[in-house]
Design a binder for these strands. Structure first.
Lengths: 238, 238
DNA sequence: TACATACGAACGAACGCTCGCTCGTGTGGC
DNA sequence: GCCACACGAGCGAGCGTTCGTTCGTATGTA
């Protein structure tokens, strides 16, 4: 079970904040500007001069804080990735039943992406511009997260046979990977349309995506939704 | 109903091919190189010199065929968009029941993206680098496609009340938009993992995504899948 | 208190390079 | 003879980055 966490609401926010404490105040400004610009116009379209202008220094001063433009991207991506990974690992999904495990993963993923939409966008879309060595490391992290989802979906399948892949030509293993990729993409897409000034709160959207993911996995009835069971403190209900 | 179509399998391939007939052989080579490179490394990371080198001409010769690098991107994006739109419009979804309509849209979207993965990737990811005027036009096309999905999902909801949004704080309209965005993203994601040398054929994947979308919309039972009804010629079953 | 030292952080100037793109010219097939 | 299409040369602009230097402040020592 996962009742050990102390943060009541969003542990990843604390993780992300702590990771940023290692920057000096000046470097922190640079990182913030990088997060803004990389998320808004992309890594390639962002110039050092754009970046430094938006935080009140000149281009050369950038290199007092980071080795290169790419090093800044790497810092941002790695920080976001490990914050998400810590959050999902803390769920200890292998101790939960499939419904709670999948719900927890989706809720954690979606609320992370909505709470830190810029960091999430960069981690999801811009990491491909890193050099192969760094990119491979990032790739490993992403694969680890994906395998969390696949593991839960596989155990949901073997434990209760709820997936309906058997009636088609699609093997279970591929159906599971397809499902995992799709659900992960939901989380990425969520931050594309969500705006914090909308009528929905982040927990509400998180729960909506949980129901959606359960339906996708065949773990929830479509027309007569099951009454939600009492939830862990990490996944508040509305 | 939609029994008027003549192409038995993939009408969008014909549409795309016809659209390319307007290019001279030399220009066609340039377009092909652009499709390859824009899809592989992105519009910004592709240089005119990369592009022309890969099709055997020099950089200046490029401008005998296209006004600018951006004009080439615009051509590619617009062609792909209108091919997809023609394909989905031809379904005449408003004459179908919700299950067939949603299945047809998802099947059309997914098989289009898998048949033309490079064009789809460009149309989905690179169009943002166009100037505002062109981008707005592309935006309109994309909104039109999205509204096709929203319209089908809305009619599915009002006709049969299958969506379970009512039991939560999420209004139906937002639930529908969330669903539409999610299903559209499935199609985009599909071309990220599908490789044609895999054991699955494109129609198989298309049907897998159909079942997934139906589950997402609450239009199919999760554990005991409904036996598929006889299908239109535009959506072959395995 | 007073001075020497060290350091974080900023700067202007400029480097080498590549970008998208243009110009004037050559040339081969209808 | 013409014209579509290729070419080499080269443009101005902007890129990421480096360099040498300065400024202000904190700290340690006498």
């Amino acid at each position: 079970m996962a009742e050990l966490r102390t943060e009541p609401n969003d542990p990843s926010a604390a993780v992300l904040e702590r990771a940023r404490a290692r920057y000096s105040p000046a470097a922190r400004k640079v990182v913030d500007a990088g997060v803004d610009l990389f998320a808004q116009v992309g890594f390639l379209a962002t110039t050092i001069r754009d970046l430094t202008r938006s935080c009140g220094i000149t281009a050369p001063s950038f290199y007092n804080h980071f080795e290169s433009k790419e090093a800044l991207l790497y810092d941002i991506v790695r920080t976001a990735n490990s914050a998400l990974e810590q959050r999902l690992d803390a769920l200890e999904v292998d101790t939960l039943d499939p419904v709670d495990a999948l719900s927890g993963l989706v809720y954690g993923l979606v609320t992370f992406n909505l709470t830190h939409p810029k960091e999430a966008r960069i981690a999801n879309r811009e990491w491909v511009f890193l050099q192969p060595a760094m990119r491979d490391e990032v790739s490993t992290h992403r694969r680890r997260v994906r395998s969390l989802f696949e593991q839960v979906l596989a155990s949901a399948d073997t434990q209760s046979g709820l997936l309906d892949g058997a009636h088609e030509a699609v093997p279970d293993e591929l159906e599971i990977r397809l499902l995992a990729m799709s659900i992960l993409n939901l989380g990425i897409a969520s931050s594309d349309w969500y705006r914090s000034d909308r009528p929905l709160t982040i927990p509400e959207v998180g729960n909506a995506y949980c129901r959606l993911a359960l339906r996708m996995a065949g773990l929830a009835p479509p027309a007569a939704p099951r009454t939600p069971s009492p939830r862990k403190n990490s996944r508040p209900r509305t």
